[in-house]
Each structure stands twice: as structure tokens, then as C-alpha cells.
Write a protein that binds this DNA or RNA. Structure first.
Lengths: 355, 355
DNA sequence: ATTAGCACTCAATCAGTGCGAGTGCTAATA
DNA sequence: TATTAGCACTCGCACTGATTGAGTGCTAAT
């Protein structure tokens, strides 16, 4: 069966209409849609064909048609591009991000998720950046008195971690100074991969009687870098938005959806999946069954990757009903990503601090 | 009308039964409830009286009775205590808290909220501690090179804040050392209230040509202490639990509840209210209309205050349907609070660090 | 190739009905 | 006098069947 221009137009009309109403759309509705001047009967014939091709279905006999996953896929892959017109309304998207003074990067990301949720009326999720690539930039030990040592570790990207080390021995201020110099000269500029056993042994021997301190500091470094590795933090926002889409709230669906959104574990399976395509702002679209989470099988998810600096990446995802406005979401995401780029290019070297 | 012993027992039975089933409870049910051996007819007469007193109502003619807010209030205030028996099952509450290695206090609190939610089957919320009372313990400036200064501020309770300061002038290592000494000797042990304009002027003059740095450091201190002041962080957990109670999910209720739970702003009006009673573990019970949040008018909320150290307090709240198991929740909260006490008495001086 | 017309399907709506849980009242009982 | 049995009554709920209307597929006319 040939998918000619007219069929495409009809499919497109069905998708757009269903997007707005959430109701199955009938031949009459499409017919009145001007653009293509055909009678309902003709439309019906075409729709029968589209159904045969598996692009649309009727929920029951004598109902209008709704798009199938396959239909949406086609729309996203080819139809969508054809109407990039007048999308520049998005350019006017409130760039509140720029205005608000957010000095912590995670908070900025959370803010962003909130704004996206508000603008799109879908739920959003976001993972904190993966820092595993980061390097040690600076280490500072200071005595807090009473056998306590404060270790401050700064990583590239100005990530700062603190640990308080409890000591059993007493250390003089001078020793601390020595340790500082020694640690910095040995560790500066190294990533976690480069801090190997050999180096650790070397440091310990250089630390002499304070080998235990050195060892604790190295543990702290490992933890600092690791905390952004094993379990990337995950935030969600706008989850109540799903109540706006009746098709997501039938039965126990709402409950399960909200649960998975709150628990977050499952969400990471979506975010972790790296769809090969390493484009600049790699945008992935998962439609219905394509979503690798049981309770989200009749949602669609669109994810985008952001990059703070070389190799420091995270993902942002938008969760909505299958009839979500794919075009708007994709454009909004692209837009947001470039805004982020701007922010990070400006802010790269200023005062962003983190715990 | 006199509220005699028998009426109390019947009211109690109604409340307990309604707690389990969520269905209006009829005279027959109570009658079969042993304990008091009365026929349904007698119970009916008594129930008519209880209804007249405004303690119970029937949702419609020919339905059983359900407790009113007033009925619950009575229950909470006087009836509840009378049956403190066999509550020690709670003693066995999984004290997972003790086991899990949680080294950051906010994470511990969040964990606790999760466990409470899982144990009670209600939603929980928790505010981070208010640090406004805290004092400066230790300040450390270190040069990061390229005109950048790292300021590390340690407050009592081992709260650690970092800021990176961008300088326009260059500072020698020796100057930094001087600044460190000067700042510490001037600021150590002071709370925010004690850092007044006079002191600030004094510090600036002592800093000489580096007055701008001193000023930036003081700003950072203010911010460090403040961040726990103006907007106390608020976390929620177990929000999907509300789906377990049909009376909370009718209409748009679920949606609105979830929304207020996600947005958190409104929740703080509950948490902020300080009910005079400055008991050890001050526990407050809000029933139905007593809850100062519109969308929660047919919930009940129970809050408890925890105290990390002198004056450093936060609140934890449990949100459920009006028929929640008040006794269990109150006991669980008391229990949890004492566990917290233990933890903090042990951990007080160890390595809890925070951003 | 398109369209008008028509018979058909089926979800949704609504009134009518019977059921059952639960009540209040009255009269009998301990 | 307090309790209980009995009975008529109420009202939500679940079920039924009829009606409606949106939408279809097919056929014949244009």
C-alpha cells in the first residue's frame, strides 16, 4: 500500500486533532478541516487504508480513529519536520533562567525542570551531571582543633566536597601545611582513573607518620568523585500535570505513574539508555511501548542530553501522554539546551559551588 | 446530654472500625463487636444520641455512621490514651535508620521520611533543620590561583559552606594567612545576630587593602547561615500512598493533593505554625478543617518536632485521611523522635557534613 | 475518482426496578 | 426502667432495557 501525499495529510490531521482533544477523531471532523477539500466519505476510505497500514485504529467499531504507536513514530520521524513554520513563538520562551540568580548548578537544573514542566504541561525529570570524568583541581586540609581535620576537595567544574576527618593522633599546623603541599603536588590534575595503587602507596610513604590521614583524604576524594557516579541524583517536577490527561489517569494508572515518578529508580533506566546517536543535543523520542518502564507504556518520553563541560553530562526528560505535542517539546528542549550552553559558557569560570 | 462510658465505647468502636474499612459502620456491626453485649437496637439508640452530640453523622439516610471532625478530636484528646496497651509492637519498628550509613544529615532525614511513609502507609513531609541559631566555628580562605579564592565556612553542627570568590586584585599567600587569622579571631563563636555593622566595619578596617575580600567573605557567611533560614528545605515522601484511600482520590482531590505536596509552599504553613506547647517532642494533630491548607481539608496531619542540638529544630509531618490511625502514627512518631535523639547524641561530634 | 445515501454498530445516557443495608419507632419483655 | 424484637421505611447501588447519536462501511450515482 502506497502512503501518498493525501494519506500523509490525513494522518497528520488526525494526530494534530487528537493531540488537542484526546478524543477519537472522525471523518467528518477531518473533512471540515479545510486544507484538503474532500467529503467525509473519501476520508473514510483513506482512513480505512491507514488503518490497514497500522497507523491508526478505532478504539471500538463506530468510533473515530486514534493514532497507533507506529503512527506517531512515522509522524515524529518524517511528518513532523515538514511543518517547521512559525515555530518561532518558542523563541519567546520565558528565559527566566537567565534572570533568576541561581548559584548552584543542581538548583539551576531543578529550576529548569520546573520551568519546562510549567511551559509544556507535562512532567519532567532531570539527572544531575555525571562527574566521573572530573579531575582533582585543589585540595585543602585545615585543622579544626580537637583532633579534627577539614578536607576540602575541589574538582574541575568547581565541584566542592568537604569531609571532616577524625584523627586519633595530633597533628601540628606545620605538618598540615606539609601534607597540603604534598597532596596537591601529587594529585593535582588527576582523574579518578589516574589515582592508582602505585600512586597511593607513594603518597602514603611521603606522608610518613601521617599515612593514615593521607589514606583518609584519598577515601574522601574517591567518595567525592563517586557520589556523582554510582547513583546520579534524579529530580522530577510537574508530576501533577499528568492529571490533565484523562487517558493517563484511568484505573490505577495515575497511582502507578506517580509512584514511579516519585521513586525515581525506574526512571534511570530511561535516562541511562544511550541511543548511540551522539549528536550535539542528542534528542531521543520514546513512544508508548518503546518506553522501557512498565507503568509508562502508554506515555511517551522525550529526553535530551545536556553538557556542562567536556564530558560532564546529564539528561533531561519530558513525560507526557502518547498524544503529546512532540514538535513543541522537541523544539522547547532544543531551545533550552542552547540556553544552557550560553549560561555555561558565561558562567564556566564563576562561582558555582556544590556540596 | 451526658457522654457516659457506654457511649464512649461505641464511639471508639465506630472510629476503629471506620479506620479499617473506610465504610460507614452500622449498628449491627458494632453489636457483633462483642466487648459490650448489646443488640443493634440499643446501639442504634445510643448512636442517635452520639449523632445529636455532633460526634458522628450518616452520609445519607439509611447508611451507617462515620465520625465527624469533632468525634475524631474527642478520640484524639481523651479516648485514645485509654488503650495504650500492646502498642509495643511498634518497639520492633525496623530501625533501619541505625543500620544504614547515612553521613549527611539531610539525607538521614529524607531516609527517615521514606521509612515512615513505608511503615504508616501515609504521606510524609519533613523540613530541614533551621540553622539560624548557628554560630561560626571556623573560616578558611585558600587561594585557588588565577585570582580565585576559596572560602570555606564551618558552622556549629558541622555545617560546611563553600564559596568561590573572584578577585580583581592579586593576593599573596601571606596576605591570605593574615586574613585567615584576622577573620577567625573576629568571628569565631558568633551567631548571625552578633555580626553587626560595627563589627563588620572593624573587620574591614583591619583587612586594610583587602577590605573587599573581607566584605565578600562576610556576604558568604550571611548566605551560609541564611540559606537555612528564609526558606527551610522541605521534602516529601510516600505521596502515592494517598491513592490507597478512596476518600482522598474522589474528583480532583488526588490531583490537588499531589500538587500541593509537590509544590511544598503551602505545606510550610502547617509546619511553621508553632502550637505553643513546647513539650519535649511536641506533637500536633490537625484534623480535617483544622488543617490550614485548602486542598487538605479532608486530610489529617500530625506533626512532630525534632531537635538536633540546642535550638536546631525541624518538623516532620504525616499526612493521611481523616480516618488515619492516630494512635499508631503518634506512637510511631514518638518512637522515631527518640531514635533520632539517640542517633544525634552518638553522632553529635562525628563527621556529618553538609554543603 | 469522488460523493451522496443508507443501513449498521456501539458507547453513552437515562429512567425504571429490585435489592439490601441500615435506620427509627413502637410494642413487648426482663 | 432499660433492653430488645419486630416492622415499616429510606435510600444508595447495581442492573436492565430503551434511546440517542456519532461514526463507520458499502453501494450506487455522479
Amino acid at each position: 500500500m502506497e502512503l501518498d501525499e493525501r494519506k500523509r495529510k490525513i494522518l497528520n490531521a488526525i494526530i494534530l486533532n487528537y493531540q488537542k482533544t484526546g478524543e477519537p477523531v472522525g471523518s467528518r471532523t477531518i473533512s471540515k478541516d479545510a486544507e484538503l477539500k474532500l467529503s467525509p466519505a473519501t476520508i473514510r476510505n483513506e482512513m480505512a487504508d491507514l488503518e490497514e497500514m497500522g497507523l491508526i485504529v478505532q478504539p471500538h467499531t463506530s468510533a473515530g480513529r486514534i493514532p497507533t504507536d507506529k503512527g506517531y513514530r512515522l509522524y515524529v520521524n518524517s511528518l513532523m519536520q515538514k511543518e517547521q513554520l512559525a515555530v518561532r513563538e518558542l523563541e519567546a520562551e520565558r528565559s527566566e533562567l537567565m534572570l533568576k540568580r541561581v548559584d548552584r548548578i543542581e538548583e539551576l537544573l531543578i529550576q529548569m525542570a520546573k520551568i519546562l514542566a510549567a511551559n509544556t504541561n507535562y512532567a519532567t525529570m532531570i539527572t544531575g551531571p555525571k562527574y566521573s570524568q572530573n579531575k582533582v583541581k585543589f585540595i585543602q586540609l585545615s585543622s579544626m582543633g580537637r583532633g579534627k581535620l577539614l578536607a576540602t576537595i575541589v574538582l574541575t567544574g568547581n565541584i566542592i566536597k568537604n569531609s571532616i576527618l577524625a584523627l586519633n593522633t595530633c597533628v601540628s599546623d606545620d605538618d598540615i601545611l606539609q601534607m597540603n603541599i604534598m597532596l596537591n603536588s601529587n594529585l593535582n590534575g588527576l582523574s579518578i582513573a589516574e589515582i592508582n595503587l602505585g600512586l597511593i602507596t607513594k603518597i602514603k610513604s611521603e606522608a610518613g607518620e601521617h599515612a593514615d590521614i593521607a589514606s583518609k583524604v584519598i577515601d574522601a576524594i574517591a567518595e567525592a568523585i563517586d557520589s556523582g557516579d554510582g547513583s546520579v541524583p534524579m529530580y522530577t517536577s510537574g508530576t501533577p500535570n499528568i492529571f490533565k490527561y484523562p487517558e493517563l489517569t484511568g484505573g490505577d494508572q495515575a497511582s502507578e505513574l506517580i509512584s514511579t515518578l516519585e521513586e525515581k529508580e525506574q526512571l534511570s533506566t530511561i535516562m541511562e539508555y544511550d541511543g548511540g546517536c551522539s549528536d550535539r543535543h542528542d534528542i531521543q523520542v520514546y513512544i508508548g511501548d518503546e518506553v522501557p518502564v512498565e507503568s509508562m507504556k502508554n506515555c511517551s518520553v522525550i529526553t535530551a542530553t545536556y553538557e556542562l563541560s567536556e564530558g560532564v553530562r546529564g539528561k533531561i526528560g519530558i513525560i507526557g501522554p502518547k498524544r503529546m505535542d512532540y514538535r513543541k517539546v522537541v523544539d522547547t528542549l532544543k531551545n533550552t539546551m542552547s540556553q544552557l550552553d550560553v549560561i555555561f559558557k558565561n558562567d564556566e569560570q564563576t562561582d558555582m559551588a556544590e556540596d
